[in-house]
Design a protein around this nucleic acid. Structure first.
Length: 194
DNA sequence: GCCAGGATCGTCT
DNA sequence: GACGATCCTGGCG
């Protein structure tokens, strides 16, 4: 994977991140759930214009945007689209594959399904904090690779995003169909993404 | 299984 | 001074 991957529509990137392997240091997992946040989107942090917090959203693609949610949880995003265009993909859930005991220790939870099934959870499991805000995704401790084997052909479903009040009806959440590791089950009706 | 409530703090009004 | 792109626990069926 190269930086070009992120220099595209945030929606394409959000869709294509599903099934990718994400490693941070000794911990890793497969991306099973994402959400897209584009510049013209009221739910996007950059919607209000450039501020100290959202600075990196306006920067070049392929960097991490990490911020603190509810004063407690760090949330990991990948900056997309050309420099000057503020958009990002929120990484919402992973299927843990490596460093699982370390994840258990960091999370204080035993069940594998409880380790990375939510944006705050996976950040804690992977040891992500605000110091990684602005970090280059193509430098350590990050390691990213495109879907291989079974992961290249998984079914992806879309639906409304979670936990937001503005523009909550837009179907910009993507996840692996039927995965036990997503943050929440889907409503009854669901669309299949291209 | 479902729901209500609390934790906790950087950012912007 | 209010508000979250959240998570966990405890209470109740």
């Amino acid at each position: 994977m190269n930086r070009q991957f992120f220099d595209r529509s945030v929606h394409e990137v959000a869709r294509d991140l599903i099934g990718c392997r994400l490693a941070i240091g000794p911990t890793a997992g497969m991306v099973v759930e994402t959400e897209a946040y584009e510049a013209s989107d009221p739910a996007c942090h950059a919607y209000v214009g450039r501020t100290a917090r959202n600075e990196v959203l306006f920067g070049p693609p392929g960097h991490a945007y990490v911020y603190l949610s509810y004063g407690i949880h760090s949330l990991l995003n990948f900056v997309t689209e050309p420099e000057g265009t503020a958009s990002a993909v929120l990484i919402r859930a992973l299927e843990p594959t490596e460093g699982i005991d370390l994840m258990r220790e960091r999370r204080g939870q035993e069940r594998i399904e409880a380790l990375c099934s939510g944006p705050g959870k996976l950040a804690e499991a992977l040891g992500i904090d605000l110091s990684l805000n602005g970090a280059d995704l193509f430098q350590p401790p990050f390691e990213l690779s495109e879907p291989a084997g079974e992961w290249a052909t998984v079914d992806v479903v879309t639906g409304p995003r979670i936990g937001i009040t503005k523009a909550a009806d837009l179907p910009w959440r993507y996840s692996v169909s039927g995965s036990r590791y997503v943050s929440r089950p889907w409503p009854a009706t669901v669309e299949k993404a291209a």
